[in-house]
């Protein structure tokens, strides 16, 4: 019984700095509280072939910062991900970048950033990018901002599309097969996550 509870509810309090990889396929809900001046860098992935439904809740205290990155390849599976970032303290920062590549697969990303009225000088970015490798794949995206004062920097963005045809042609003209070129571009798409801000 205990084991089941651990799998369903996970609470992390980060008070210094933490950089870690987390397999979301093991969880339904993940709660992170980033304490004042602490810094977290969290990489999410979904190993295995099973579908997953995960909610990530993040609370940031004053001057806390958090990087949330995720890259998911959905080949014949479905990943549903909800993020809920609440800036509880002023000057807190958060950067989210979640990417999905679907091949006969489905993805759903719902992200929400909340900044209350009396919490100022926060910076929060949310980016969700999806690549559909075939016409049998779907991606759903719902980025949401709930910002209650003007003294913040917040952005959100979302893209859904196929691999760039010009890039595919270029790589093929250099001797890569269609499958090899796809693999290279998917790898490039995954690596870009840490370099791009909206």
């Amino acid at each position: 019984m205990n084991k089941v509870l651990v799998m369903l509810e996970n609470n992390y309090i980060i008070d210094k700095s933490l950089e870690t990889k987390i397999n979301i396929a093991d969880f339904n809900t993940l709660n992170f509280k980033i304490k004042s001046n602490a810094k977290a860098c969290l990489f999410f992935e979904a190993k295995g072939n099973q579908d997953s439904n995960t909610k990530i809740n993040v609370e940031l205290d004053e001057n806390a910062s958090c990087e949330l990155y995720g890259f998911f390849k959905n080949t014949k599976k479905k990943t549903n991900l909800i993020t809920n970032v609440i800036h509880k303290g002023s000057k807190s920062k958060c950067n989210q970048d979640f990417r999905f590549v679907n091949k006969r697969g489905k993805s759903s990303f719902e992200g929400k950033i909340t900044v209350p009225k009396d919490v100022v000088k926060c910076e929060s970015h949310m980016l969700n990018k999806n690549i559909l490798l075939d016409t049998h794949s779907d991606a759903f995206a719902k980025p949401e901002l709930d910002i209650n004062n003007d003294d913040v920097i917040c952005t959100h963005g979302c893209t859904i599309g196929a691999l760039d045809e010009d890039h595919m042609f270029y790589l093929q003209s250099r001797g890569y097969t269609e499958d090899e070129a796809t693999e290279i571009l998917v790898e490039a798409f995954a690596h870009m996550r840490t370099q791009e801000h909206i």
Binding site: D166, H167, Y170, G175, Y176, E187, H191, Q195
Partner: peptide, 16 residues
């Protein structure tokens, strides 16, 4: 020629 961020100049060529 395109830009392809996420893969290095040498990596793209290294197969050849």
């Amino acid at each position: 020629p395109p830009s392809i961020p996420g893969i290095t100049n040498y990596k793209l060529l290294s197969q050849f």
